[in-house]
């Protein structure tokens, strides 16, 4: 098996064409939720699942759907997908749904998903579309977590607070108090902090890219 195309898919999804830092897609959920690492991880996981599923289906139906109606069909696929994920999670993972539940409607507003359906999955075979969904989702999650860590650290002086929401009781003590006696910096938690933080992350990425040249 030729591994080269997959390496390119991974590199594009994680870094070169990172949906959050380069394509700047999915900003609505990104900015709304990234005020802590755990929140970011939650939205990232939910988005990755939705991306992999929608990429899979779009790739499978790509030869049946004519060019003129492809976008409405993708919208239908994604909407049905997300609704079904929402219902199944509510029924079988109710505890997790109570936490991630608020993120799931936000996934539909994430244009990265329809972006990948149109730009990649509709032109590629199933295995590549799957890999693309996974790596793009992972790249989005990592960018989201970096922003979440930055805002949580500056805003409240902690990291990984509320890990038990996602990981259960074992994670009760994962929270790290980085600065003792920290008064908090509200701006970082509020929406402006999200924009400033995202700007900083993009700048850092550009600096690294420029150095590499």
């Amino acid at each position: 098996m030729n591994i080269e195309p997959y390496r390119k898919i991974a590199y594009d999804g994680l870094w070169k064409n990172n949906q959050a830092l380069v394509a700047l897609l999915g900003l609505c959920p990104l900015l709304a939720v990234s005020n802590s690492v755990i929140n970011s991880l939650g939205l990232g996981l939910a988005t990755t699942v939705a991306l992999v599923l929608s990429n899979t289906i779009v790739s499978l139906i790509r030869s049946q759907v004519s060019h003129e109606v492809r976008l409405p069909v993708y919208v239908l696929v994604i909407a049905a997908n997300v609704t079904i994920i929402d219902l199944l999670m509510n029924a079988f993972f109710h505890e997790l749904h109570k936490i991630l539940g608020i993120f799931i409607p936000l996934i539909v507003t994430n244009c990265a998903i329809i972006g990948r359906a149109e730009a990649f999955a509709s032109k590629n075979t199933l295995d590549k579309a799957l890999a693309d969904g996974f790596f793009v989702g992972l790249g989005f999650t990592l960018a989201l977590m970096a922003l979440g860590a930055l805002r949580e650290l500056i805003g409240t002086g902690t990291l990984f607070s509320r890990a038990d929401w996602l990981f259960g009781d074992i994670a009760k003590h994962w929270s790290i108090q980085v600065f003792d006696d920290y008064g908090g910096f509200l701006l970082a938690i509020l929406p402006p902090g999200a924009f400033i933080g995202l700007g900083l992350l993009i700048a850092v990425k550009n600096v690294i890219d420029a150095r590499g040249k």
Binding site: V69, V73, L76, V77, A80, T83
Partner: peptide, 16 residues
């Protein structure tokens, strides 16, 4: 095209 769109709507609604 209309038939495809209709088919997918029905499928989507049915599944949900």
């Amino acid at each position: 095209a209309a038939a495809i769109l209709g088919l997918f709507s029905l499928l989507g609604i049915g599944l949900v």
